[in-house]
Design a protein around this nucleic acid. Structure first.
Length: 260
DNA sequence: AGTACCACCTGACGGC
DNA sequence: TGCCGTCAGGTGGTAC
């Protein structure tokens, strides 16, 4: 699940229900999510403090603490952030949880364990060290134009390049180029100005709309590719058949009739 | 610089 | 029913 819209949904959930609640206990149920950080260090940074502010950059979620530290969360392929008002029994894939003094629980569930949690002092330095580009929703038309011009690979590949644009993954890159009617393999530098504008408009529109609908595909418009992401499915625009191809080792879906 | 492949993990699915 | 290969919305390292 977790591309930009999903992580934005988690951020809003955290901002709405997880702030200013004193943390009484930290449950680390699978320390591999800490990627080498010790449970002691993370527990020390969190216990007795509160989360006071949220932010997001691409697929990374940050929660500033009431001391100088910041909690960093990444959700990999299957991570989910849940906030419960009352004590909640951990499910089988819960990796870590914060128990609030008021009895509520913030729980991180991640079946495949490709996500991680860490604590940092300096978010800006963290983003720099991890080569994280600007958030996709903060990218202006001129920024996107410059990135496209300077990139020698395909459009979809650039959209997924986290060091250039943070937040877009396999699913939403397919959706964005579908809505912009651009072939995913088309060389980025070959887009004319009209195509660059379509791509920029659809990038913002798709990501914002998806987040506003809770990143729940069943609530997405019928005309979205997301709802027809199957080899040989009819194109929701009625022009052709969806094709599945292999791009960078991953499945990419597109409509050869609409996307050029 | 861009791409291809592997690794990290778990689970679901189709074919035999 | 069981076994096997493949695939799944992420990222990092390596080797062209």
């Amino acid at each position: 699940m977790p591309e930009l819209p999903d992580v934005e949904v988690y951020r809003r959930r955290l901002a709405h229900a997880g702030l200013h609640r004193p943390i009484e206990r930290v449950r680390v149920r699978d320390s591999t999510v800490l990627r080498g950080f010790s449970s002691q260090r993370v527990t020390r940074a969190l216990r007795g403090h509160r989360l006071v502010d949220t932010s997001r950059r691409g697929k990374h979620l940050f929660a500033a603490m009431s001391d100088p530290a910041t909690l960093v969360m990444h959700f990999g392929m299957t991570g989910v952030l849940q906030v419960h008002d009352r004590l909640h029994e951990p499910g089988p894939h819960e990796r870590m949880a914060l128990e609030f003094r008021d009895g509520g629980v913030l729980s991180i569930v991640d079946q495949r364990k490709l996500g991680f949690v860490t604590v940092v002092d300096d978010v800006t330095a963290y983003c720099h060290d991890h080569d994280l580009g600007p958030d996709a929703l903060a990218l202006g038309l001129g920024d996107l134009r410059a990135l496209l011009r300077g990139y020698r690979g395909g459009v979809k590949s650039l959209l997924m390049e986290q060091s250039s644009i943070a937040g877009i993954g396999n699913i939403y890159s397919d959706e964005i180029v579908f809505q912009a009617r651009i072939d995913p393999r088309r060389p980025a530098a070959s887009l004319d100005d009209a195509a660059v504008r379509r791509l920029h408009r659809q990038m913002s529109r798709v990501l914002r709309l998806a987040a506003d609908r809770g990143a729940d595909p069943s609530r997405f418009p019928e005309g979205w590719l997301l709802r027809h992401r199957q080899h040989h499915a009819p194109c929701p625009r009625g022009n052709g058949q969806i094709q599945k191809i292999r791009l960078g080792g991953r499945g990419a879906y597109y409509c050869p009739a609409c996307q050029r």
